[in-house]
Design a protein around this nucleic acid. Structure first.
Length: 576
RNA sequence: GAGCUCGUAGCUCAGUAGGUAGAGCAACGCCCUUUUAAGGCGUGGGUCCUGGGUUCGAAUCCCAGCGAGCUCACCA
C-alpha cells in the first residue's frame, strides 16, 4: 500500500521536520526534540517512568483495544434521566472509555471525568472496589490519559451520574501537559496550529466541526434526493479556469509539465453536462493564490452543481430551498445568530444589482445614481466624482457622525475612488458597476439577499439576458455581509464563448492577471452541444461560518494555512 | 502588500518614575473513601519571541527581524 511511503517519511528525522520518532523524545540533551523547555522534557521522562510502573501492574502501555459496552454520549442519553433510586434498585453495569479531563484524588478514593465524543462522564474509583493494584494504577493516571472503566452506574450526593468503577484499564498516556483546565487553550495561534489540542479542550470548537460535517451531509442529501450525481473532477489542471483568481502552480515531473491547482471545477462540470450527466455536483477544494483574511483561506471548499434545462430563475428557487434545508439540518431552525444579527435563511430578498446600488447608496454620497447612469460610463463617472466629493465633505462633519459610520464611509469612499480611477483608465462600464456594487452594497447585505443581473463584462461564462445583451442571467447571494455563492445560466454558444475568452485576454493585456485564460478544449466541448444549463457555486466554509456564528474562516477550517513555525534552531545557517 | 495591537512558566494571565520576575491551573512530595474550577501543607519550574542599541542597570525605552490577531487592499 501507498501508506508505507508516508509512514517512513513521517518517522524520518529531517531538518525542520516537526515529526520525530518516538525514541527521539527520550534524548534529554540538546539535539532535535519537540521540547523547548526543561519542563516538558522532564515531564515526558516522568511520564515514561510512570508508564513503566503501569506495565509492572500488569497493564499494557499501549493496548490495542477496549471492548466498551457504551460510548459516553450513549450512557448520558440512556441514563441521564434515571433516578438514583432506580439505579440502585436495578444495577446497570457499563464499560466505557475516554480521556481523563479532570481528576481528583482523595486518599484511598477519587473522582475523575472521562471525555468521549464531546461529552463527559464522571467516574468514582475507590480502593475497596478496584483493589490495591487497581488503585495503584489510578494513582499513576494523569490528566489527558485514556482509560477504560467497567463498573455500575450510580448518582453521587450531588446527583451526578457516575460510574462506580470495579475494573480500571489503562489505554494510553498523555506525555505532555494539558492546557489550563478552566480556560482551555485560548491562544488563537496555538488553537490553529495544534488543533488536536483545541478539539478536546474546547468543546465549542469541536461542535463547529461537527456542524460542518452536517452541512456537507445535508448538501449531499439535498442533491442526491433531486437526482444529482456526485462527481470528482481534476484538481490539477492545465488551464486554471472557471473563476477570476490567481492560481497555484505546480509541476509534474514524469510528464515534465506545469500544472495549476484548480481555482474552480466549473469548466469540467459543464463538460460532464455536455457528456449527458444532466445533474451533477461536486464538493471539494479550490485553491486560490490570493491574500488571507477572515473570509479567505488559500484552500477552501466549494460546492458546485449544474442542472440541464434549468436557468437562473430555477437556481434562485433551489438556492433558497437549499439554504433553508441545510440550516434546519444543522441547527434545527433556519434562524442563525451571527455577531449580533439574527439571520433567517428562510426569508430572502431579491434585488437586481442596479437596484441594490441605489437601495444601499449612502445618503452621505449625495443623490443616488439614476437608472440611466448605468448605461453610460461617462455619466456614471461623473456621478462617482460627485459622490466622492460629497463623501469627503461628510467626513469633515465628524461631530455629526458616529466613529463607526465615519470608518464605514472612509472605506466606501476609498472603494468608490478606486472605481472612479479604474473607470478613468477605461475600465469597462460593467466592471465599474460591479465594483461599485461591492463598494456600497455588499458589506450591508446582512439578511439573505439574492443580487441578480450582472454586467456581461464581469461574467465571461454566463448567458446574456435575451432582451438585454449588456447583462447576463447571473446572481450571487449574500448573508452576514459576505458572498455565499454565485450562479448563472451557463453560456452554451461556443462562438460567443470564444469571443468572451478573447475579451478576457484583452483584460489580461490591460493588466488584470485574474482575467480568464483561453480554454480551447472547453469551447470544443460546447461545440458538441451543451443543453441550456444552470450552474452554481457555494462556499461551504462561509456557509459553515454563518451557521456556526464564526467570524473567521479559520475557525471553520480544521488546519488553516499558517506561516511556517520557526524555532530558534531554524535560525541557524541553512544549506541554501 | 499596508496600518494598528500583541508575544512573560506547559496553559491562563499579572508585572512601567528602567533596579536581573509573580499568581492560579498543571507538575512533584505528604494528608484526605461522594468530589466536581475539591481542599490543606510543602517543593520545583523562566534564553521575559529573536537580534541589536540606549543605560551603571532593560520584561519595561529605541531599532530591526520572526510569529499571531484585527482592520484594509486583492479575492470567494
Amino acid at each position: 500500500m501507498e501508506g508505507h511511503g508516508s509512514y517512513s517519511q513521517a518517522y524520518r528525522v529531517g531538518q525542520g521536520a516537526g515529526i520525530l520518532p518516538f525514541w527521539a523524545f527520550a534524548q534529554s540533551s540538546e539535539g532535535h526534540t519537540v521540547f523547548d523547555s526543561e519542563f516538558e522534557r522532564n515531564l515526558f521522562e516522568l511520564r515514561r517512568t510512570k508508564l513503566a510502573e503501569i506495565e509492572k501492574l500488569g497493564q499494557a502501555a499501549y493496548p490495542n483495544q477496549f471492548p466498551a459496552s457504551h460510548t459516553v454520549p450513549e450512557v448520558r442519553e440512556k441514563w441521564s434521566a434515571v433516578s438514583a433510586e432506580e439505579l440502585d434498585a436495578n444495577r446497570v453495569t457499563v464499560a466505557v472509555a475516554g480521556r481523563i479531563m479532570a481528576i481528583r484524588a482523595q486518599g484511598k478514593a477519587g473522582f475523575a471525568t472521562l471525555q468521549q465524543g464531546g461529552q463527559r462522564l464522571q467516574i468514582y474509583v475507590r480502593m475497596d472496589a478496584v483493589g490495591e493494584q487497581g488503585f495503584a494504577l489510578y494513582k499513576l493516571l494523569d490528566l489527558g490519559d485514556h482509560i477504560g472503566v467497567t463498573g455500575y452506574l450510580f448518582r453521587t450526593r450531588t446527583g451526578e451520574l457516575t460510574v462506580h468503577v470495579e475494573r480500571l484499564t489503562f489505554l494510553s498516556k498523555a506525555m505532555l501537559s494539558l492546557p489550563e483546565k478552566y480556560h482551555g487553550l485560548a491562544d488563537v495561534e496555538l488553537r490553529y496550529r495544534q488543533r488536536y489540542v483545541d478539539l478536546f479542550t474546547n468543546l465549542d470548537s469541536r461542535e463547529v466541526f461537527v456542524k460542518r460535517a452536517k452541512v456537507l451531509k445535508a448538501v449531499r442529501q439535498f442533491f442526491d434526493e433531486r437526482g444529482y450525481l456526485e462527481v470528482e473532477t481534476p484538481m490539477m489542471q492545465q488551464i486554471a479556469g472557471g473563476a477570476a483568481a490567481r492560481p497555484f502552480r505546480t509541476h509534474h515531473n514524469a510528464l515534465d509539465q506545469d500544472l495549476f491547482l484548480r481555482i474552480a471545477p466549473e469548466l469540467y462540470l459543464k463538460r460532464l453536462v455536455v457528456g449527458g450527466l444532466d445533474r451533477v455536483y461536486e464538493i471539494n477544494r479550490n485553491f486560490r493564490n490570493e491574500g488571507v483574511s477572515t473570509q479567505h483561506n488559500p484552500e477552501f471548499t466549494m460546492l458546485e452543481f449544474y442542472q440541464a434545462y434549468a436557468n437562473y430563475h430555477d437556481l434562485m428557487q433551489i438556492t433558497e430551498e437549499l439554504m433553508e434545508f441545510v440550516a434546519r439540518a444543522v441547527n434545527g431552525t433556519p434562524v442563525t445568530e451571527f455577531y449580533g444579527h439574527t439571520i433567517d435563511l428562510s426569508r430572502w430578498q431579491r434585488l437586481s444589482m442596479r437596484e441594490a446600488i441605489r437601495q444601499y447608496w449612502p445618503e452621505e454620497a449625495g443623490p443616488k445614481p439614476a437608472l440611466t447612469a448605468f448605461e453610460s460610463a461617462e455619466v456614471l463617472r461623473a456621478r462617482l466624482h460627485a459622490a466622492i466629493g460629497s463623501l469627503e465633505k461628510a467626513a469633515g462633519l465628524t461631530t455629526q457622525i458616529t466613529p463607526e459610520r465615519l470608518s464605514e464611509l472612509k472605506t466606501i469612499r476609498e472603494a468608490v475612488t478606486a472605481v472612479y480611477y479604474d473607470s478613468m483608465k477605461d475600465a469597462p462600464l460593467g466592471k465599474s458597476i460591479y465594483n461599485l456594487f461591492e463598494a456600497v452594497a455588499e458589506p450591508f447585505l446582512i439578511q439573505p439577499t439574492i443580487i441578480y443581473d450582472y454586467p456581461v463584462e464581469v461574467s465571461p461564462l454566463s448567458k446574456a439576458k435575451p432582451d438585454d445583451p449588456a447583462h447576463v442571467e447571473r446572481f450571487e447571494f449574500f448573508a452576514g455581509g459576505f458572498e455565499l455563492g454565485n450562479a448563472f445560466s451557463e453560456l452554451n454558444d461556443p462562438v460567443e464563448q470564444h469571443k468572451r475568452f478573447e475579451q478576457q485576454l484583452s483584460e489580461r493585456d490591460r493588466g488584470d492577471d485574474e482575467a480568464h485564460q483561453m480554454d480551447e478544449d472547453y469551447v470544443r466541448a460546447l461545440a458538441y452541444g451543451l443543453p441550456p444549463t444552470g450552474g452554481e457555486g457555494i462556499g461551504i466554509d462561509r456557509l459553515t461560518m454563518l451557521l456556526t456564528g464564526s467570524k473567521s474562516i479559520r475557525d471553520v477550517i480544521l488546519f488553516p494555512l499558517m506561516r511556517k513555525e520557526s524555532t530558534s534552531k531554524d535560525k541557524e545557517p541553512e544549506i541554501s
